[in-house]
């Protein structure tokens, strides 16, 4: 069996980039990882190309996040040392509303389990319950319940963060 990757690419590329963005939170990096995922895909002929693509992309993002975390830890330490040395004031708040909303979404998402997050992303990327279940190692019949719970938790966490922002003024 051969796969028409050109068709998959045209239909799925933007959604894949957005999926990756929500994992690495960096638009350029998301593009690079999406390209990398497709590069790996060419020449492969999996039964379900879309599910396969998202699995590869998910793994790339996970490796990326691990590298980024190490990098940030190092950076944070350097920043602390530098700030301590120069006793600089901390950085002020950023203005753009969508950036605030993004940040709030990130923090709300951080309260969810990885499985719930992945279920939401994969669903948002247009994968079927069967495909999502296969990737997460769950029964397809449990996907409705998993997604219902994930959405409820995300909404609650997001609302709580909005309230603290209003309370702070």
């Amino acid at each position: 069996m051969t796969v028409d990757w050109a068709a998959v690419y045209r239909a799925r590329y933007p959604a894949l980039v957005r999926f990756l963005y929500r994992k690495v939170w960096d638009a350029d990096r998301a593009q690079e990882l999406a390209q990398e995922a497709f590069l790996r895909a060419l020449g492969q002929a999996p039964d379900d190309p879309v599910a396969w693509l998202y699995r590869v992309a998910g793994n790339l993002a996970r490796d990326e996040a691990r590298r980024a975390a190490r990098w940030r830890r190092g950076l944070a330490r350097l920043a602390r040392e530098a700030a301590a040395a120069a006793s600089l004031p901390p950085e002020g708040p950023r203005g753009v509303e969508q950036e605030e909303a993004d940040e709030r979404l990130r923090r709300a998402l951080a309260t969810l389990s990885e499985r719930d997050r992945d279920a939401l992303w994969l669903r948002e990327a247009g994968l079927s319950y069967r495909e999502i279940a296969a990737q997460l190692g769950l029964a397809p019949g449990a996907m409705g319940t998993t997604l219902a719970r994930a959405r409820q938790r995300l909404a609650a966490a997001y609302s709580a963060l909005e309230e603290t922002r209003v309370a702070r003024g």
Partner: peptide, 9 residues
């Protein structure tokens, strides 16, 4: 759906 689709590029 709105929250997620508005976030990102």
């Amino acid at each position: 759906h709105g929250l997620i689709s508005r976030s990102g590029p």
